[in-house]
Amino acid sequence: MLSGSAPRTSAAAQAPAVRQRRKHHLWVLYFYGSAIGKKAVMAVTGIVLLGFVLMHMVGNLKLYYPDAERHLNAYGEWLRTFGEPALPHTGFLWILRGGLILSFILHIHAAVSLTLMNRQARPIKYQGGRSYAAADYAARTMRWSGFIIGFYVLFHLADLTWGNANPDFIRGEPYNNLYYSFERVPVALVYIVANLLLGLHIYHGAWSLFQSLGLANPRFNQWRRTFAAVFAAAIVIGNVSFPIAVLAGAVDEPEHITGEARLIEHAHTLGTAAETLPGVTFHA
């Protein structure tokens, strides 16, 4: 078809810039050096992060259990002790964290380098403005929503993992930390806004990953958008409900029941000492 088209006006006029790519001998680097490779990495790391975000939200639904504090703190303790004695204390947790940190870094690195590549591809914008025929708000704000979510994650860690942004922080008592964090209205608002942006990011990302990995099929194409919308909605509804529930007083004030206290109580009902329960180690 192309050969049948009109002769192009003299291309000698001005040759466009050609990006030369270094040939890496290491396959992984060569693969990652291509834009499609980077997008595939973004899709795969996106799937890892989606899995994390979903499990994080589902885990926090324990906030709505009748005995929420015990359950949430015990869940936190379980994450630290899981895999013992085969793995050291918090070993399993650090394997998860390692995967997450790697995914996060790769996701951001790929996004930044592709954005720079794309800026170079159109150095002069449309001087008369442009209109959008298909790209929705979520797609057009991916870079902004991603950028803000990145900073929100740092705040979230400082608030509920490291504790330096939370004056009421007690290590090992997630229920207490979460409760007193969300009780502060500005902090609750940060969580709500950040999760709305996360939903927006997922709405495009969870659809886009299918395209990036080449997963298109007439049988399920129409469900890709539904999947992304449902996933985004589930995350937003779940996560936004937590600060709202705390602010609305629908969640009980902490009574400082730690996971260890729960285990001791559980052992008591069994009529044994907590130390004799399988897989339990206490860290004073």
Binding site: A35, M117, Q120
Partner: peptide, 20 residues
Amino acid sequence: VEVMESYFGSCTNYRECEAV
């Protein structure tokens, strides 16, 4: 793909191309 990427940007699945 290699030649394409040496001149052009990368796809972020906006779907604008298909629409026009």
